[in-house]
Amino acid sequence: MEITNQDFSNLLQYIFMGIQRGSIYALAAMGFNIIYNSTGVINFAQGEFVVYGGLMMVSLTMTMNLPVPVAFFFTVLFVMLIGILMERLTINTVKSPTVLRLVIITIGVSIFLEGIAMVSWGKNSHVLRHFSSSETFEVFGAMILPQTLWIIGILVFIALGFILFFNYTMTGKCMRACSINRDAARLVGINDRKMVMISFALSAGIGAIAGIIITPIIQMDYGRGTMLAIKGFGAAVVGGLGNSVGAIFAGILIGIIEAFGAGYISSHYMDAIALFFMLIVLFVKPSGIFGSSEASKLKEF
């Protein structure tokens, strides 16, 4: 079989599409990891942070006509506030927390937030202006949106910030200490409850950014949270739960698999293919495909 130029451009097109969607799963996965590392709980409301990021950005830029950087800032702040409220009003108030109960609470929060989003923004999809031009440009025959570059750039930026935060700031180091051994951390005077709150704030903030940068491409509606959460969790598992560098690669991998599935198999089954891949990894190598199983037992950011 001969590979034509057209085939190559298509391939490239799918890869870009995959990276673009995958970046969002990577960010969602990082959000899962932060909360998982600090509480041992899988936060089912993670997808709602992404939805709220997208929808709030729509309101601030499209309705209130704020400039993009200002709106970006306030949207992230707003969603972080939701994260903090979620932790303070629900997780933090539970006196005898079991993981089962906490997980169900996050499910409750996710239904609640989804309901609020529907009441506030309605059921239809919302359009958001691209950050810069919405004109595609051509690379080896593949059509690429400037927004895709924004997405990749912001992902790289966040990943670097992430590494700096957890390795070089006091708060970041304290959070790592808590995740490795909470009792020992408490003994040396770290306020572990506060660390949990910060982890919710950070996780919500990262989710919000994911929502803001993807909405110009996919449009956002109130009901997208669950699917985003499943795929973000998929990325977290494939990357090794708790390991955020793994999560970034895994997110992009899932995005690419999804894009290939849509391009070469059937767009109807696009979501199913990505989920199927996640289930296969979950069953065959639950410690993730990046990093050894030994490493995944140690909680690292």
Partner: peptide, 20 residues
């Protein structure tokens, strides 16, 4: 496979399977 693991893998696995 998912019940062999500790934690709430079953929740996510069943969610993914339900979506599929």
């Amino acid at each position: 496979p998912s019940l062999k693991l500790r934690g709430h893998y079953l929740a996510m696995a069943t969610l993914g399977f339900g979506a599929i």
